[in-house]
Amino acid sequence: MTDALALLSFGPEGWGDELARGVLVTVALALCTLPIGLTIGFFVALAKQSEEPSLRLAGNIYTTIFRGLPELLTLFLVYFGVQIGINALLKLLGSGTTVEINSFVAGMFALGVVFSSYASETFLSAFRAIPKGQYEGGYAVGLSYGMTMRLVVLPQLIRIALPGLSNLWLVLLKDTALVSVVGLSDILRQTSIASRVTKEAFFFYGIACLLYLALALVSGAALRRIELRTERGTSR
């Protein structure tokens, strides 16, 4: 039995520094994905609650596709497919450059579209929870559509959508593990390499699970604080 502490030490013999880097990559990927997912999700939700049927249709197609495909498959389609597609297009346009989509960017996009398709549903139900009177009130005091949206609707929307979005954030943290399959050195890939090299599979995969749990715990606590903050203004 190898000494667990030695395996986790920092330095050339131990895996501590590799694992720490893996945690950083996982967190970085999740954090970079979040704004993409939120932005796309918000606009897809706007489209889905629009009065224009073609916009609703477009939004619904988007959600249907990206909620129906396995995340792993979406990732493969982006990682291999989009790169082949873009390079074929560039070649067609006579450009000599090639565009490389590395596993981080592919992961960011794939997880971003998956996140946004779920987030759009959360936003949509939050939109529906805001009474029409709020818009009318905004217009009545002379605010434009954009200002009503920004000053009246959005602050309430965020508060209502926050619990759902917190949940999606936790799902996103876990989904980043899939990107290890296309070679991103995240927590799971680093622990996989460590377990193959040291043959201590149970130990290292156990560590991986604990690291994900720790991330979930920390972000769970942070999200609860944010939720409490947004609820300051509401009296119960």
Partner: peptide, 19 residues
């Protein structure tokens, strides 16, 4: 506009001229 901006900036992130 925002979607295309996003796409463009992401491409810029990923683009490395390997030529």
């Amino acid at each position: 506009r925002i979607a295309s901006l996003l796409a463009a900036s992401a491409l810029a992130l990923a683009a490395t001229a390997a030529g």
